[in-house]
Design a protein around this nucleic acid. Sequence first.
DNA 1: ACCGTGACGGTTGAC
DNA 2: ACGTCAACCGTCACG
Length: 256
Amino acid sequence: MEQSTFGEVNQLGGVFVNGRPLPNAIRLRIVELAQLGVRPCDISRQLRVSHGCVSKILARYNETGSILPGAIGGSKPRVTTPNVVKHIKMYKERDPGIFAWEIRDKLLADGVCDKYNVPSVSSISRILRNKIGNNPTPTPISQGYDNKNPTIMTQPTAPAPIYNHQFYPYSCSTPSMPPVHSSQMPVSQPLAQLNPNKPPQPASNCVTPCMMRAWATSSHSVNDILGFRPPSHAATHGPSSSAPPSGQHGKLRTEL
DNA sequence: ACCGTGACGGTTGAC
DNA sequence: ACGTCAACCGTCACG
């Protein structure tokens, strides 16, 4: 456990922390290289990240436009919001003999919940037993929760779990990732320009739940992240000015 | 040789 | 305070 924070070494000699996402800088680098036309297998070798991981990150990027990992840990958004509890209580008061499954149906019928966030029958039973049965005034109703917003992605409660510790417990420059000084990632070019196929996705559009958290100043989509590069000087791919992470990125493909 | 995918062991955080 | 659970992670191996 403790030592896991020091990282382990994969078959390629790269350092990783089991169970934890790669640093954003590396993820960013993976996408950037891919946009430059570097093959995944080369990216894998170059950054010493397993090809499975490269594949996964690129697939995710293609799908969501985000390089960031998903939200780790936590539970699904609560479905028993105060408003739902209020309605359950109301149904129960109107019809003390009502069954939990009937309450469930009514919640759906009344639009209090939708199929995605309607509490299970057992949850309703628990609410009846715990909150309504003996405690007439449950939780403070109303604090922003709202059940009207049925969408799955609505974050009824917390905005988004996500790593509270800003990204990772360790900094971007991984515990030991000597070869790649990714935290300084010289992002030379906006990926959006490099890959016309990938329309720049508005940050708000990125589905990844983790989106809303950190990266406060810069958004998470690669395009946005890369957007802060120097305006001019968008040469094909010469990380000319800023030194490439590992100092040998000039020849992306050939080597190895 | 390359790449997609699933199993695996791990971490995390809400409940 | 602690355990459980379900989300995610990256690596590895297989096809």
